[in-house]
Every structure is written in structure tokens, then in C-alpha cells.
Design a protein around this nucleic acid. Structure first.
Lengths: 138, 138
DNA sequence: GGTAATTGGTCACTAATCGTAAGTATTGGA
DNA sequence: TCCAATACTTACGATTAGTGACCAATTACC
């Protein structure tokens, strides 16, 4: 198996460039990729991006589609994704306000990887539930 | 684009079986798959599973490999993954104690999906950092 | 004219989760 | 005797998630 993670690399320079001959690794505490991993490996991120895969959506649409998310958390999630270049926020100067969110090309590269996780969660419910019951019974 | 998420499905019965003719959806607040998604779409889960992809590892090995994780958080992450059937914990009755963690077949099905996320984070550092700088500058 | 509805938020607050630093148990070895 | 080693616990503080109230500005309705 390919060693994507450079498991043997324990140190990291203070400046933000990879060590010579090595790539960044999320396993290094100070690597910027760890922040990115934390952002994309996140349930709300996965849900937002998968919903936005169908095209631009308004704030209220997202809030309805994501059944149970609070306005505050949705706002924060969207702002973080916008900041990291994964979506664009477009506010129209209308009353009542209208704001649309749309994936960028960078954001679209996450659709399929995150859809895989979503499908995994949906398809392995019986196995996970069974394992959980077995664990709790002992 | 395939509608993996049954976006139109807003309701969910109290009993835990899918509505007739429909599959579970992580978008439904009460769907068990949402709990699973929260577990697997998680930075520590992604890192633990990707490290365990190389074979069984001891607690201390994982802690070293995951540079920066605390013992408590590693313990909790491992216990949750064990409970959901993704890894097996084997404790040897020795002094000092030795405990090994190994992926189950179910856990191994997550290696590749999570490795994709890890690679995404590592490969898109420049784009993300640039987007972040641009956002913060306006 | 007065009042409610609409939309995309913000604010203050509480609850839950994450993370840190220290401690525990056991035994072999200096 | 005291320390090292290992895999946790526990107590605590910090960060994050979630809730409910409120807001601005216009249109629709009575």
C-alpha cells in the first residue's frame, strides 16, 4: 500500500513549505493539510457539498434540505467553505433578501469523494447497528 | 447527477425502517446513517483508519503516528470505531500492557474513501491557502 | 393605516464536545 | 527505593454546536 501519509516524517519546519524531497502530510501537526482535512472530513461539509452538487441553492433551501441544521451552524459552515474557495456566495439586493450558494470548480472536486462517504453511511446501517448492539451487550 | 440523498424526503418515521420504496437518507435528522456519517466524516477517524491500513498497530504507535493527538481523544476515537464494528481491539495480559488495534473487513472498506480525502487535503494546500488569503484580504 | 409575512441572517445563552495536563495501575530493572 | 514503560482515566478549561429571540426592509392583506 502506498504510504500517502509519510508516517515516518515526525518533524515539520516552522515555515510553510514541504521538507526537501517530501510531501506534506496530514499526520504532521503543523501541516496546513490537517486543517483542510478537518474541514472536509466533517458531516455538515459532506451534506452541504452533496446538496450543492445538484446546482446553486438558496440559504433557505439548504436549511430545509439539511433537516435539522441550525441557521447559525449553516451560516458558519457556508462561510468556512467560502473562505477556503469551495463555494461562492452571491447576495442579491432584493427585499426580502436572496442569497445563492454555488460550488466552485475546487468545490466540485469534492462532490464524488464526499458522496462516497454519504453512500457508505447509508448502505452500511445494518452492519453498524448490529456491531453497536453487540458491543453494548457485552 | 444522481440524487443520492433523496433531497425531497423530509419526513422520517419514528421506527427505524426506511419508508416504503425509499432508502434512508443522511439528510433526515433521525436517520441512523447520519450518526455513521458523523463518525466517518471526521479527521481523526480518517487518520486512524489510514494509518491502520498498513496493518495492526499498538496504541502507542498510533499515538506517535498521529502526531499531536492526545491519549484521551485517541482512546475515544478507537472505542467508537470498535463499537461500530470498524476495528478490533486486542489486549494482551502483560506488564506493561500491550493493546493492538486492527481493522475489520468493514473498516477496510473505508480505507480507500478516506485515503481519497487525505490525498485531497494534501494536494490542494496551495489552492486552499490562496483562497483563504484572498477572502481575508477583502 | 396597521399588521403580518418573507428571508437571511445576528446575538446571547446553554449544552455538548474537544483537548490538555495530570494521575493510576502494574511490574521489571538500576 | 525510585524510575520507566504502557494504556488508559479523570478533572478541568476551551472550543464548538445548538436554541430561541430578534432585526431590517419591503410587499400583501385587512
Amino acid at each position: 500500500m502506498t504510504n500517502y501519509l509519510n508516517v515516518t516524517n515526525g518533524t515539520m519546519p516552522k515555515t510553510f513549505s514541504p521538507p526537501p524531497g517530501q510531501d506534506w502530510s496530514v499526520l504532521s501537526r503543523t501541516c496546513p493539510s490537517r486543517t483542510s482535512l478537518a474541514r472536509i472530513a466533517n458531516k455538515w461539509t459532506a451534506m452541504v457539498i452533496t446538496v450543492l452538487a445538484d446546482g446553486p441553492q438558496r440559504f433557505g433551501d439548504l436549511r430545509t434540505a439539511l433537516d435539522g441544521i441550525s441557521g447559525k451552524v449553516l451560516t458558519e459552515t457556508l462561510r468556512d467553505l467560502e473562505r477556503d474557495g469551495m463555494l461562492i456566495r452571491t447576495a442579491y439586493a432584493e427585499i426580502p433578501p436572496r442569497v445563492e450558494y454555488e460550488l466552485t470548480p475546487l468545490g466540485r472536486t469534492l462532490i464524488e469523494p464526499l458522496a462516497v462517504l454519504v453512500r457508505w453511511a447509508e448502505q452500511h446501517i445494518p452492519e453498524v447497528l448490529a456491531a453497536r448492539d453487540a458491543y453494548d451487550d457485552r
